[in-house]
Simulated assay, not measured.
Amino acid sequence: MRTTNRPASGTVQSVDRAVTILELLAVHGTAGVTQLARELGVHKSTASRLVAALERRRLVEQVEDRGHYRLGVGVLKLAGATTARLDLAQEARPVCRRLAADTGETVNLAVLSGGAVLYVDQVSGTSTLSSYNWVGQHIPIHASSNGKVLVSELDGTELTRMLGELVAYTPSTVTDRALLEDELAQVRQRGFAVATDELDVGLTAVAAPVRDAHGDVVASVSVSGPSFRFDEARIAEILPLVRTATTEISSRLAHVPPER
């Protein structure tokens, strides 16, 4: 199983070879460095360095027959994260469809990913003539209602790590850290966030949290549309529907709300 058309860049080539090692182990189950080197078409010392790097990240591990390797628990961790995200989207999809039908607006399901908001699913409503497809897009945390919901319960250190630089995307984007923290405190208290003209002028979104069995915020659901349509009265109509939807999705993820 020799790879072809491998990139010329040294760093990219190393990454390509490391991924190929994972693919080879997935096919063979176990393999020694000599075999891996032969199938990669590289010197044994090169294969050994690549395997060592993967082993440090627990992506591969030695079997009892030392010198032979198999996929490690690190791969299971990555696969588990992907499966959890797919499960979330699957459980949320019918609820988001109903929310889009009830509001007539665009509904998005989002999670945190790499210091940004990742949109994992979207359903367009009947009032939407043409809606931009946000699925797969990474959106700045501080400029979106979903982002504010997703980081509203993080402590200061984790919040700082997630936020990074507070860039202004419109005149309405909150770029002052103290003001943003005040707003996040309100989001925590109220259980929802609103962003008006903060990412794009003319776009307003209302979001609420989705919680898992431990009560942690693992996702958010937003309803968005043109700002001229999202006045205070309209937001007041939409908000209960969003909260009902996120409560149902949370229930599907085994979340049990605390007794009041």
Rank of each mutant, 00 (worst) to 15 (best):
V187S: 01
L22H: 03
G80I: 03
R66F: 06
R97G: 12
L184T: 08
A213R: 15
P226F: 11
A92R: 03
L78Y: 13
L203Q: 11
V120P: 05
G10E: 14
G74S: 03
S152H: 06
R58I: 05
T170H: 04
T244D: 14
G147K: 02
S9T: 13
A53E: 12
T4E: 10
T160E: 08
V75M: 13
S172K: 15
F192S: 12
I249V: 14
I249R: 01
S220F: 06
E39A: 04
L71A: 02
G72W: 12
A233E: 11
S9G: 13
S131I: 03
L179F: 09
S113W: 10
L50H: 12
L241N: 01
A100P: 06
G164W: 06
L150M: 01
D16W: 15
N108L: 15
R229V: 11
P240K: 06
D102I: 02
S250H: 06
V95W: 04
H68L: 10
P171M: 08
A143T: 07
T128L: 10
D87F: 04
E23N: 12
G72R: 08
S113A: 14
W134H: 13
L86D: 06
G114A: 10
D197K: 08
S224P: 03
A178M: 05
A195W: 06
F192N: 08
V73D: 12
V19K: 11
L129C: 05
T106M: 10
G136S: 04
K148Y: 04
V117K: 00
I235L: 12
T246G: 04
V149S: 01
L253P: 05
L239N: 07
R56P: 04
Q35I: 07
T82C: 09
P94H: 04
S172Q: 15
V33G: 00
R252K: 09
D176N: 13
L199W: 14
G10Y: 14
L86I: 13
T46H: 03
N108G: 02
Q90Y: 14
